[in-house]
């Protein structure tokens, strides 16, 4: 593992976006920051700005009103970046599956790297999900990530 990979592993700055979640998963994410789980041990910091973030944690099934926000946030993040869908809703739409106002999962809008199951997802699972994602992040090439444009095109199609 070279230095850059190691640094990427050890310094995940996390952005959290609630795309219509019931707040169950959100509370579990915040509990990761507390003394009990203390994800800052791994260098993780909860940031409020996509331009500073490496990891996007999304909760909720994504509906038609916040879809553009999610896409915008994702695009504002610098490469390399990973997306972790936290909870059942974010992974597949959950109980909102096929609901008329919901798109049914984060991967309908942006490419997702890790799916964290659970309703709500447990903090331990979230942390494990992030670390899984980080391993992927560390291995990402120095050049801009391939396939991003295709992913966008796909999601635009899915929207139609």
């Amino acid at each position: 593992m070279n230095l850059i990979q190691k640094a990427r592993m050890k310094s995940p700055w996390v952005l959290h976006f609630n795309a219509g979640s019931c707040n169950g998963c959100d509370i579990e994410i915040l509990s990761c920051l507390t003394p009990v789980y203390d994800i800052e041990r791994f260098g993780a910091v909860n940031v409020g700005n996509p331009k500073h973030a490496d990891v996007l944690l999304v909760t909720g099934p994504v509906n038609r009103r916040n879809e553009r926000v999610l896409r915008n946030l994702y695009e504002q993040m610098l490469d390399p970046k990973i997306v972790v869908a936290v909870g059942t809703c974010a992974s597949s739409g959950g109980v909102f599956h096929n609901c008329y106002n919901c798109l049914g999962g984060v991967d309908k809008v942006i490419p997702v790297d890790v799916y964290v199951p659970g309703c709500a997802a447990k903090p331990e699972t979230i942390i494990e999900g992030v670390i899984l994602g980080l391993e992927k992040l560390a291995k990402m090439p120095a050049k801009a990530r391939p396939g991003r444009q295709e992913a966008k095109a796909e999601s635009a199609e899915a929207e139609r």
Partner: peptide, 11 residues
Amino acid sequence: RQAVPYLCGEP
């Protein structure tokens, strides 16, 4: 890269 300003996520 071309940037858009951060407006709480709204494009």
